[in-house]
């Protein structure tokens, strides 16, 4: 089936079998291997990407369902000049990754939430909910929580400063 995926702003005209899951198509057909598969049945969240701004588990979605949609993966987080996303900086600063396998999923869950509601840092319990949606076996999660809060606060502070100027 012929579809067009827009991934990180770039159009990928593809011919894919309807049964192929989005994660496999991103990884194998688009060669964007930053999206990882930790369970392939919707539990771990390692495969999380944004489809039209919503966080989805790309192991539970067929690529053909995303025809015409805009997909964002970890490769598309950094700015156009390569400037890291505040979440990427915060994850590093807080040691929110060890092996890094779960990391793209957490980054994308957080990126989706942060974009939907830049003030999420003001409600720590919502950040807790985000962290609780994926599995990490290395860090014990607390550093991930701190990283998301840090990025969120940095963003709101940045905006407040910008507004005051």
């Amino acid at each position: 089936m012929k579809i067009t995926l827009t991934v990180n702003g770039e159009a990928y005209p593809l011919d894919v079998e309807p049964r192929r899951i989005l994660a496999d198509v991103l990884r194998e057909d688009c060669r964007l291997t930053g999206t990882h598969l930790g369970c392939e049945h919707g539990i771990c969240g390692a495969c999380t990407v944004l489809v039209d701004g919503e966080a989805v588990r790309s192991c539970l979605m067929f690529a053909v369902q995303c025809d015409g949609s805009s997909v964002r993966t970890v490769e598309g987080l950094a700015g156009p000049d390569g400037e890291p996303h505040p979440l990427q900086r915060a994850f590093s600063a807080e040691h929110a990754l060890q092996c890094g396998f779960c990391t793209p999923g957490f980054l994308m869950v957080a990126a989706g939430a942060l974009e939907a509601d830049p003030a999420i840092g003001d409600s720590p319990e919502r950040v807790d909910g985000l962290v609780g949606s994926n599995i990490c076996r290395c860090t014990g999660y607390e550093p991930i929580r701190r990283a998301i809060l840090r990025a969120a606060r940095e963003q709101t502070e940045g905006e407040r400063d910008g507004g005051n100027r």
């Binding site: 291997t33 930053g34 993966t73 970890v74 900086r89 590093s92």
Partner: peptide
């Protein structure tokens, strides 16, 4: 801006 050397690639989807 990266605390560990591994972080750049692992955080940007460039890990292998």
């Amino acid at each position: 801006q990266w605390t560990r050397r591994e972080d750049r690639r692992l955080l940007t989807g460039q890990g292998r």
